[in-house]
Measured scan of single mutants.
Amino acid sequence: ASVAVIAAGTQGNIFATSALRSMRFLQILRMVRMDRRGGTWKLLGSVVYAHSKELITAWYIGFLVLIFASFLVYLAEKDANSDFSSYADSLWWGTITLTTIGYGDKTPHTWLGRVLAAGFALLGISFFALPAGILGSGFALKVQEQHRQKHFEKRRMPAANLIQAAWRLYSTDMSRAYLTATWYYYDSILPSFRELALLFEHVQRARNGGLRPLEVRRAPVPDGAPSRYPPVATCHRPGSTSFCPGESSRMGIKDRIRMGSSQRRTGPSKQHLAPPTMPTSPSSEQVGEATSPTKVQKSWSFNDRTRFRASLRLKPRTSAEDAPSEEVAEEKSYQCELTVDDIMPAVKTVIRSIRILKFLVAKRKFKETLRPYDVKDVIEQYSAGHLDMLGRIKSLQTRVDQIVGRGPGDRKAREKGDKGPSDAEVVDEISMMGRVVKVEKQVQSIEHKLDLLLGFYSRCLRSGTSASLGAVQVPLFDPDITSDYHSPVDHEDISVSAQTLSISRSVSTNMD
C-alpha cells in the first residue's frame, strides 16, 4: 500500500485504499475450498504439459491467421470504412471474430473485405477451437489413466503375492535341489530340531500304542527276528556328554522351557516337584528354603522380579524323601529317536503342500481383483469380450473355409453374387472337401465294379455249361463312374476274359 501511495501521489490514498479493500473479495475463495484444490491444478498442469506441443502448434497457427486476416482486412477497409482507421481496430475485429465472440461493433463494408473476412474466419476458427478439443481429450485420457492406475494399485499386491507364491512353489520342487534360497528361508522360521524330535516322538508313541520308545526297546525280541524299528541315535539331556547330531552343545531358554513342560507332561506320578524357592531380598537368592510367592517384596526391581519368575519355571527341586529312583531318572531322560535326515523329507513334503495351498489362494485372490467394480468397468469388459468373440468367430470361419475348400476369392465371389465353382473344380482343390469328394467317387466306382462281377458270377453259375458261358453278354464299365481312378482293366474288353475262362473250363471238362 505504501508503494502504491508513493507512486500515485497524494491523490492515490483513496485509490490504494479501495484497491486493498477490493482484495477482500479473495476471501470468498476460501468458501469454495480453492486453497485446498491442489490436486485439480496439478491435474491441469499435467494435461497442459503432456499436450504442450499440440497446444503450441495450434496457438501458433491461429496467431498467424489472426495477424494476416487483420492486416488484409485493414488494407481493404481503411479507405471505405471509418471503423478500420488503424491496424489496432482491425486487430480487435480479428480477435473478436476468430474467437467466435462477434460483438458486431465493427464489420467490413466492401465486398473484398467481406470475402477476406469469411475466408479467414473459416480457416482461423478451426485453429482457435483446437486447444479446447486438445485439453478436453487430454483430461479424458488423464482421468482414464488415473482410473486404471487405481485399479492397478488394487491389483499390484495380489499380483506380487501370486508371483511370489508361484516362485516358491517352483523352487520347493524336490527335483530342483539346486534352488536353496527358499529352503534357507524356511530353515530360519521353522522350530528347532528338538521340537521336531518331540513332535515325531509323540507320533511314534501313538503308533506304538502308547508305549515310549524306551519301553519298546525293553520289550523282549526273539533271536533272529528283525527289529520293528531301525537303530537310531540316542540323545540324552544337555547335561550328559552325548547330543543329537546337528545340535549345539548350548541350550537356549526356549529349549529349557519346552524341556520343563515336556517333563511335566510325562505324568505327576513319576515326577514330584517341590515348592519353588524364593529369594528373600533382591540381592541374594536362598535356594535351600522354600517360601511362598506372596511374600515377594514390593520394592524389588523389574529385573529381580523377572529373575524370580524364571526361577519359578526353570529351577524345580525335589524333596529328599520323594527323590526318584535311578530307573525313573533313566525313563525321564530325553530320548531322541530320530535324526535330521529322517525328519527333513517329511518336513519338505509338508512345506510343499503348504506352498501349493498358498499358490491356489493367491491365484483366487488375484482373480477376484479382475472383477469389474462399476458400470464403466462392466461396459469396458463387455466390449473387450465382444471384440475377442468376433476375433474367435473370424478365426473359426477361416478354418471352416479351409476345411470346406472355400477360399478368400470364392468368398468374395459369393458376396458379389457370382456363380460358384463347379464340382470338377471342387474335386481338384487341395482341401478337405476335395479329398472327401475324391474318396467318395472312388468308393462308388469300386462298388459298381463289384456289383458287375457278382452279377457275372451268378449268371455263370446258373448257366452251368461252357457254351452258355461264352454266350453271356458282359456289360462294359461306364468310364464316368470311375472318377479319376483309372484301372488298367477298364480299357480292355471283358469278353476276352470271358473267352479265356470258357476255354479253360472246356479243357478241364475234356480232361475229366
Rank of each mutant, 00 (worst) to 15 (best):
T266K: 10
P222R: 06
L199F: 08
P345L: 07
S269F: 00
G288A: 15
R250P: 07
R207H: 14
R256L: 06
I403M: 13
S431I: 02
Q402R: 13
P213L: 14
K438R: 12
G288V: 15
T339S: 04
I253S: 13
K295T: 11
P488S: 06
L453M: 05
S333I: 07
G252R: 05
R256C: 12
K295Q: 09
K438Q: 05
I343V: 04
A197T: 08
A177P: 08
S249R: 10
P408L: 08
S242T: 10
D418Y: 07
C460F: 12
R228G: 04
H236R: 11
Y178D: 05
R212G: 13
Y185H: 10
A362T: 06
H491Y: 14
M174L: 14
A471V: 09
I343M: 09
G405A: 02
Q499L: 06
D255H: 09
I379T: 08
R237W: 09
K419Q: 05
K449Q: 01
N208K: 05
D377H: 09
H236P: 13
S504Y: 10
D478H: 14
S422F: 12
T509A: 06
E331D: 09
L214P: 10
D388G: 15
G470A: 14
S171T: 06
A471P: 10
R364T: 05
Q473E: 07
S395R: 13
P230S: 05
P475T: 14
V216L: 03
S504P: 04
D255V: 10
P279S: 07
T180K: 11
I481F: 07
M278T: 02
K419E: 03
L452V: 05
L360R: 07
E337A: 05
D428G: 04
K365I: 11
Y457N: 06
D342N: 05
E415G: 13
H486P: 09
K332R: 08
R352S: 07
E247D: 02
P191Q: 11
V375A: 09
P238S: 11
A329E: 07
R305H: 10
E285K: 06
M278I: 13
C460R: 06
I257N: 14
T509P: 02
L196Q: 07
G409V: 12
S463C: 03
G385D: 06
P475S: 13
H386Y: 06
I481V: 13
A384T: 13
K449T: 09
T241I: 10
T398S: 14
V232A: 00
K363R: 05
Y178S: 08
Y457S: 06
P479H: 11
T306N: 09
S249N: 03
G434R: 12
P268S: 12
A362D: 00
V437I: 01
C336G: 04
Q271R: 14
I257M: 09
A323G: 02
P324H: 09
S495C: 07
A498G: 15
P230R: 08
G417D: 05
L211I: 13
M174V: 07
A290D: 01
K438E: 04
M259K: 15
R505G: 10
Q204E: 01
G288R: 15
V203M: 13
T500A: 08
S333G: 11
L501I: 14
R176G: 11
D342V: 05
P282T: 06
K438T: 09
K348E: 06
A197P: 01
H202Y: 08
R307S: 08
P282Q: 04
V378F: 01
M389K: 10
T277S: 12
S495T: 10
I343L: 08
A290P: 04
Q263P: 15
V203E: 06
N208I: 10
K376N: 13
M344R: 12
A323V: 07
V427L: 01
A467V: 02
A219P: 12
D490H: 06
K332T: 12
V340M: 07
G434A: 08
W300G: 13
